[in-house]
Design a binder for these strands. Structure first.
Lengths: 262, 262
DNA sequence: GAACTAAGTTCCACTATTTGGAAAAAGTTA
DNA sequence: TAACTTTTTCCAAATAGTGGAACTTAGTTC
């Protein structure tokens, strides 16, 4: 689904096109973009040229395809440093993953979705970058539910309205009603579980990261598979998970980490 | 130094502002940006509003500061997947780092600078994300020199013209003449060394990654410190490094990885 | 090799957006 | 309250963007 944005003039249109290219995920030809795009041929063409000029896109002359430019990778590094919880949380996540020897994820809510901003995987330190910047659904992931559970009603309904409720597995929650019930339980318990709701065999235990003022600024999870852990054995990590989340929240407060507007 | 770009209209200006925020590296106030910016107050203000609307920036109302938005992190993930060598090179880098048990970097030339797109660090799998998207100087890093050495004259002079020749250490090359001499040697040998030219104590051995057509598409390095290795002991990795580079080059050809325009 | 087709690029009169000086709000300090 | 700083709004003039149509290029067919 292409990102719809109310008129921010030309800049909005250009970024719209950039998003389209991003969402397609592989090099695209002009004509292919044109089919999807809401802009007329000449306009689209000019926008693409501008983005090329700005190195936001790169063009393969041989294949006549456009794709995202490396400039974005550079910018994102800066964005990650200054806008994500990751740099603040880094030492705490390291320590947690060392202690428990499990895969740890750090996420934030972004536009109703879960945005993973860091990950530790002690056993196999590979396939790592492939995770920062990755997005996932909020309604069927541990971190997503943990963060949602601690939003206030206004924020929550905004976030819920953005959920697709697609049934990934037999265990996926597929209605707002069910979700709200689950969130109430999570709020009581302070932690959430992903019971194979997003991917078969994958389970996790998660906690929200709250600012000193009690607002949700992120989520933390320990992920495993049913081949290795039961939900009960994951629950043993609860104290460490909560402790780490608390420490990160405090540190973020000290750093004056901004409260997001999800 | 702010990025100067010839007129791409409003879009160019907006991205210019975005760059400015990125380069400052920490949350900035309006007035602070205004001082640096070449745009008049009202214009700058509107550009910032547009970028905010588009989630490219986020705003902290309490502190009245702007910073890069998480949307960039998401986009960059897509960019990394579709425009960097990293996904293609992944298995080869894993294997190399496993075999040699040393820190391995994968880089590309971007606008005359070295852009690190992946890294493996077998001993301590931490501080990882902090590297993808990081940029470094080309004239005083192993990968930078290795890549430069295999550019054709046109590209090379363009890249050289962008070098700052800042003297980071006592060993930094600080003139075009010296650099060209060094590059000639590197071209002959097929590999380059960083002899503490960028950071004290840090040394590395690097090779360019060439496409099947012989064009530079990236660089690969094994990094260490003089506390652990001598240049001679690093040189022992030469065969493996060259072999891996060759494999990546081949694979990239198969994937039709585009030849960059540095 | 002329005629057809599809993809990409350019043109230009028309229009909508951007511009920026100036002035009003909002917030700070004295 | 006055003097100040910083941020935000306004609006007529100026500029930049628009998009239908025409053109170019490359590839295919008869």
């Amino acid at each position: 689904m292409a990102t719809e944005k109310r008129g921010d003039g030309t800049v909005g249109k250009a970024l719209d096109v950039l998003n389209e290219v991003a969402e397609i995920g592989s090099p695209v030809r002009f004509s292919s973009l044109l089919k999807t795009s809401k802009y007329p041929k000449a306009t689209l063409y000019r926008l693409l040229q501008t983005l090329l000029n700005q190195d936001m896109l790169s063009y393969n002359a041989e294949e006549q395809t456009y794709k995202l430019g490396l400039k974005l990778v550079r910018m994102a590094h800066a964005a990650w440093l200054q806008s994500s919880l990751a740099p603040i949380a880094l030492p705490f996540i390291d320590e947690l993953s060392d202690k428990v020897s499990e895969t740890v994820h750090l996420a934030q809510l972004d536009n109703g979705q879960v945005l993973y901003v860091d990950k530790r995987n002690p056993s196999s330190p590979i396939e790592m970058y492939s995770q920062a910047g990755k997005v996932g659904p909020a309604y069927c992931t541990g971190v997503g539910k943990a963060m949602m559970a601690f939003l206030d009603e206004d924020e929550l309904s905004r976030v819920i309205s953005k959920q697709a409720f697609f049934k990934y597995t037999d265990f996926t929650i597929t209605s707002e009603k069910e979700l709200r019930k689950e969130l109430a339980i999570i709020k009581k318990q302070g932690i959430s579980f992903d019971k194979q709701e997003h991917e078969a065999k994958i389970i996790c235990i998660s906690s929200p990261i709250l600012s000193v003022k009690g607002r949700v600024i992120g989520g933390l999870s320990i992920t495993s598979s049913i081949d290795i852990h039961s939900l009960e054995s994951l629950e043993e990590y609860k104290p460490q998970l909560l402790e780490t989340s608390k420490l990160i929240g405090k540190e973020a407060g000290a750093w004056n980490f901004p409260e997001q507007h999800n």
